[in-house]
């Protein structure tokens, strides 16, 4: 049971608990699809403390809580919060604890959610800490794979794009190491996975690293694409050249297995051509949609709601 626990990393959730979350996600999904009004979280308040701008993740958490009949308070603009006055995270958490039942936090520094959990008995959910972990994104990624591929075992998965800064990828990789997946890491040489992330998983599973997608595209079950940010490149011409060689277009997709899927944490820019959106492999909008039921299930289990 994960009731009252803090979720800072995907490793804070066991296999059995993951199954429990996904079972409840299925129920939330059917409730959403049947437009049934739910109120198990009536009277409960979720605080969303976003020390770093985010729209998608914050909206998804807030929508999840609202769908469960609960209320949401919080901030997403550090300038207007007490943080800009130099308050410590510890103090902000002690304050938020007295206003809410569950605290969702996004922070630019790694380890922020773990620190937050030390200063409150209320459950903390990490919504992204620096280039560290993003466990609810990982949950929804895994749920998408389970739903769209039909299994989580024996996966061949390719992660392509910015593997250096993307916390989504770091978090997912830790989960894949537990699932015994075969992982291909494809990125430009300057955006390779950090050594400390790779060393944590390379003993457990088969991992290949390259800058060439064509070698692995035919056999992969899941192509997980991430955004290569323009800001990472001082030279915009270099960026244009590079983005071209990693862009997923219908030609690339035609070489993929019929049963394979394409995922992306969104927002997508040039990495996936719009023509791909209508192909059967494209699952990234589905993936984003699953974010709400997955977070509904997690909130329910953390706060012990009856359904």
């Amino acid at each position: 049971m994960i009731k009252n626990r803090s979720i800072a990393s995907i490793d804070d959730i066991s296999e059995d608990e993951m199954i429990e979350i996904f079972d409840l996600t299925e129920k939330m999904l059917s409730a959403l699809e049947s437009q049934k009004k739910l109120t198990p979280m009536a009277g409960k308040i979720m605080a969303t403390l976003f020390f770093e701008p985010s729209t998608r993740t914050r909206l998804s958490f807030e929508s999840a809580m609202n769908r469960l009949g609960g209320d949401v308070i919080g901030f997403s603009d550090v300038k207007s919060s007490s943080v800009s006055k130099g308050e410590t995270l510890a103090d902000t958490i002690r304050m938020a604890e007295s206003y809410s039942d569950i605290i969702v936090i996004r922070h630019p520094l790694e380890g922020a959610a773990r620190l937050a959990a030390k200063f409150t008995a209320k459950p903390i959910v990490n919504a992204g800490d620096g280039s560290g972990q993003h466990p609810t994104q990982t949950l929804l990624d895994l749920f998408t794979i389970k739903k769209e591929i039909g299994r989580l075992e024996k996966l061949d998965i390719t992660l392509v794009g910015d593997l250096k800064y993307g916390r989504t990828v770091h978090s997912l990789l830790i989960a894949l190491a537990r699932l015994n997946a075969t992982v291909h890491l494809v990125s430009p040489p300057t955006l390779r996975i950090p050594h400390h992330v790779l060393s944590a998983v390379s003993e457990k599973i088969d991992v290949t690293e390259s800058d060439d997608l064509s070698k692995v595209i035919r056999d992969t079950d899941v192509l997980y694409v991430t955004r290569i940010q323009k800001e990472r490149f001082p030279d915009s011409e270099e960026y244009q050249k590079l983005i071209g060689s990693y862009s997923i277009d219908p030609d690339v997709v035609s070489r993929m297995k019929k049963t394979s899927i394409i995922m992306h944490p969104l927002p997508r820019v040039d990495e996936i051509r719009p023509e791909v959106d209508t192909l059967p492999q494209a699952k990234y909008f589905r993936q984003a949609f699953y974010g709400v039921p997955v977070r509904m299930a997690l909130i329910m289990l953390l706060l012990g709601g009856e359904f």
């Binding site: 995270l89 510890a90 380890g111 620190l115 030390k118 620096g130 560290g132 400390h196 944590a200």
Partner: peptide
């Protein structure tokens, strides 16, 4: 923050510590 840096001893020989906050080895 009002905490002290803290590590698990993951291995003694060779020495490997893991930060309890950010998981960095």
């Amino acid at each position: 923050e009002p905490i002290r840096p803290e590590f698990f001893v993951k291995s003694r020989n060779p020495l490997v510590l893991e930060c309890i906050y950010c998981d960095r080895e």
